[in-house]
Nucleic acid binder design. Structure first.
Lengths: 341, 341
DNA sequence: CTGTTAGCGCTTTCAA
DNA sequence: TTGAAAGCGCTAACAG
């Protein structure tokens, strides 16, 4: 086997340490450290001895200990999304992971359930783990609790919406332009009774989409009927209900704008239920959209790209970028879907 | 402000440490440690002094350092999935996260791209980070590289398929029973020409599904035509192509069994393209399945539950369970979908 | 109940 | 080029 070693020694118990390797190889601790870290100014013969010992002992460097003394980064970033089960967030996580991987960094993902208290707990826990940076979808309620951490050097980038109570970079979609494009298209087709199936106006993305729609109406000198705005379509079922209510009322809308893909599905379900025809447009594509039994026009945002760009910005910060915090807006694309068969 | 403190002192630079807090509060390091860890045998007055100092300094315990000395766990587990962009894996991650959260544990997720070399690199990197346990979808090629880590106390649970070259727990779906049920249903409806749109037989899940189908055919004393078995339907497009080829051949199948939801979509696309009617069954439900323009029967597995159960088993191991490694099989459910409008 | 002394596994001075 | 000593931020053992 080996010259001096026992073949399986460990100082205390469990995993062999650098000390064990040093003893096994008959060199000093520091020489092992140098070998492991590939320091060039090390006698190749000694290095080989060390590697030999590492192999026989099955040594593996403890990264946690390594980053403690050194001021090195932990090569870990945290991602706080709103809901693990939501494919949108999963796609963002996928994009983030890809960039993290390119930077040799691990990704810890957590979910705030869109609740700011939980978000704070998770964010601070990640900071205590000394993540190099934090990527997050800020919940309604404010992120001022992050200020001390940011002062201490933790980089933060917000996704999809701006954090409040603290200034930091954000990467967001161009909600205003997308909404304006959709609404303009609908108006140009001659529709005048246009319903908006939205969510709470406390959400900045909803505010922006509404703003875009209003701009389109203003451009066309057409009045938007506020009674046709629903701000409670949190899920497809709510959208279905709201749509049906509007269809059943006097002077029903001839076009519907859904706040996201799930709202669009809810609208289509309602049209089926009432056997009604209406123009449907909305935001965000989804895998099965071509099977929708009604034609729809969708303004699509790229969730994976959001995760990618957010992570790229975060790594720029981690690597020392000191520019003023900025907002990057990601573009949209328009696709025609549905009406299958 | 405070009695002695500067209000913002840090030993070296950056974050304040326990030492800083001790100085600020005028107590010993250990007293701070006790206060932070909520040791009950501590004079409340002293504790309050400490907390006061913690507040003024904005101190936050360094978890990395805390788990170094103590033999405490790192409260981190690793999850290696096959593809971040695949909703199936995302759902598993969601289930795993929920359980990890219940255990106050962070989740580091990584993707092997189903390549065993990359998987090994990621798994070992996670071990170097001293994760308490590893949850993974083992790639084809063998996991014997994990043996040393497991000997050193890292718990491992395999998901969806068994690891090879090493014995460990696994949580898997009951592929045989599900496939048998689907095939039996098709045969009982009178179909005799049944096509199987599968994937590589190197995948144990595919082997098992094929085994279940064969069992159903054997039960019914019917011969399965091997020419109607495709083992290359890795994506929907491939399934579409294979389906079309079979439809265009002599004596075409009257029923199709898809290896997963994407294969089912591919089959349906092919039927539409050829304006053909055929019985379609397969595995795994998906959100938009009700919009499929053909009726389908699906044997569904619960991906979130797979992640949950795997994580639960992992935590049992982490918490000292020493039973023989075992395989848990998760049940399936049958649903009728599609044929919309 | 509190403080002192080690020490976790590694990196970083600073000598030799 | 190599090694000894000190130290990262914290916890554990043992006194006081």
């Amino acid at each position: 086997m080996t010259s001096t070693g026992t073949g399986r020694s460990a100082s205390s118990s469990g995993r062999p340490t650098m000390k064990d390797v040093a003893r096994e190889a008959g060199v000093s601790l520091k020489t092992v450290s140098r070998a492991v870290n590939g320091v060039p100014t090390l006698d190749p013969t000694l290095a080989e001895q060390v590697f030999e010992a590492i192999r026989t002992l099955g040594y593996r460097r403890n990264e946690v200990a390594a980053t403690l003394r050194s001021s090195a980064l932990t090569a870990t970033i945290g991602l706080i999304i709103g809901d693990m089960r939501n494919p949108f967030y999963s796609s963002v996580a996928a994009g983030t992971y890809e960039v993290a991987r390119e930077h040799g960094t691990q990704l810890i993902t957590a979910s705030s359930e869109e609740q700011v208290d939980l978000e704070q707990e998770l964010a601070l826990a990640l900071c205590q783990r000394r993540v190099d940076g934090l990527l997050m979808f800020p919940a309604v309620g404010g992120q001022s609790y992050l200020q001390p951490e940011m002062d201490l050097g933790t980089s933060v980038v917000f996704l999809d919406r701006p954090g409040t109570g603290v200034v930091a970079d954000s990467v967001r979609f161009d909600n205003v332009a997308a909404a304006r494009a959709l609404a303009t298209a609908v108006l140009e087709e001659g529709h005048r009774r246009v319903a908006l199936l939205m969510d709470s106006l406390r959400l900045s993305t909803i505010q922006e989409r509404l703003e875009g729609v209003r701009a389109a109406f203003a451009d066309a000198h057409i009045t938007l009927d506020d009674r046709l705005i629903s701000t409670s379509c949190h899920d497809p079922e709510a959208a279905t209900k709201a749509t049906i209510a509007m269809l059943d009322a006097d002077d029903p809308p001839t076009a519907f704008i859904g706040k996201n893909n799930r709202a669009v599905i809810g609208i289509v379900d309602a049209l089926i239920a009432r056997d009604a025809r209406a123009r449907v447009v909305g935001f965000d594509d989804f895998e099965m959209s071509r099977f929708l039994p009604r034609p729809v026009t969708l303004a699509c945002f790229d969730a994976v790209e959001l995760g990618r760009r957010g992570a790229e910005r975060l790594f720029e910060r981690i690597n020392g970028l000191t520019d003023e915090p900025a907002t990057e807006r990601l573009p949209f694309t328009i696709v025609q879907r549905g009406s299958f068969r």
